[in-house]
Design a protein around this nucleic acid. Structure first.
Lengths: 133, 133
DNA sequence: CATGTGTACCATATCATCCAGTACACATAG
DNA sequence: CTATGTGTACTGGATGATATGGTACACATG
C-alpha cells in the first residue's frame, strides 16, 4: 500500500494521510488523473473515520494535490506552477535553515550538511518509481 | 531581543520558545556558559505563564541545549557529540527528504533544490554573528 | 429509481496547550 | 538565622484540536 498511518504518532492522523498522499503522488505511485479511493473506502480500509479522511482530502484539495468532482470522486491533480511560487520557495528556504539549526546540535559541519543533503537527494531520486516528472 | 513569540501561531508557544533558544544558541547570540533569563523573568518579559517557559526549559535541557543548576539558574550548555549521533543524522536526512516532497509541489527541479539549499546555507552562515564554532 | 460520490452537520470523548495560583526544595546573599 | 531568587511540582480550569459515531443532504451516474 502507498499509505501507512501510525495511530500512536503525535502527528495527527489526517496530517499523516495528507503527507502520505503527497509523498505517493510525488513519487509517481499515484499518477496525475488517476482516481483516488473514496472517502469511505479509504476510511474502512485504514480503520479510520470517514470524517478524518474527508478532512485530509479537503486539505489536499486546498494544496492542489487532488481535484474533487462532486458526486464523481477525487482525482490526482497535475502539478503546475502557481502564483505563490516565490512565497513557497521562501518558505522552503526557511525550512532548510531550520534544518541547519538541527544539524548544529548533532553536530555537523557545513560540509557534512551539504554531503548529507546530496545523499538524501540521491536516495530520494532512487526511491522514485522510475516515472516521468 | 533574541526571542520572538507569536501567540496566534498554530505551533505551541513553548515550542516557539524552544526553537527560538535553539536558534539563538546556534547563532552564537547566547554563547555556551552564559546565563539564561530565569523562568519567571522570561515569562513576565514575554507576557507568558511561568509554567509555559518552564516546560520549554525542561525540553531544552532534555535536548542538552541548556544546563539547569537547582537554585542557581540555567546556563547555555556546550555543544558536544552524543551517542545517538547516527540516529540524529538519519532523522535529519528524513527531514531533508520531506523537503524534497514539498519542493516537488512548487515545483522545483533537482538542480533548483540544490541551488536553493546552497543559498540557504550561505544566508545561514551570514546570519551567524561572526562567532567561533 | 438506486447507488456511490463529497460534504455538512450533530454530539461526544480525549488530549494538548495555556493560564492562574500555590507551594516546595535548593542555593546564595544579607 | 532570614530573605531572596532559583527550578520544579502540584491543583484547577479554560480553550482548542483531534478523532469517532451517526445522520443527512446535494450531486452524478447507471
Amino acid at each position: 500500500m502507498w499509505l501507512t498511518v501510525d495511530p500512536r504518532s503525535s502527528t495527527p492522523i489526517y496530517q499523516q494521510v495528507v503527507d502520505g498522499v503527497k509523498s505517493a503522488v510525488a513519487r509517481g505511485l499515484l499518477p496525475p488523473g488517476s482516481r483516488m479511493p473514496s472517502v469511505r473506502e479509504l476510511a474502512t480500509s485504514m480503520t479510520l473515520n470517514h470524517n478524518t479522511v474527508a478532512k485530509a482530502y479537503q486539505e489536499l484539495e486546498r494544496a492542489h494535490v487532488i481535484e474533487v468532482l462532486r458526486g464523481r470522486g477525487t482525482f490526482v491533480a497535475a502539478v503546475e506552477p502557481r502564483v505563490d511560487r516565490e512565497a513557497r520557495v521562501q518558505t522552503l528556504k526557511e525550512a532548510m535553515k531550520r534544518l541547519m539549526v538541527e544539524a548544529h546540535y548533532i553536530p555537523l559541519t557545513g560540509d557534512e550538511i551539504l554531503r548529507l543533503f546530496l545523499v538524501a537527494a540521491q536516495e530520494w531520486q532512487a526511491e522514485q518509481g522510475g516515472c516521468e516528472a
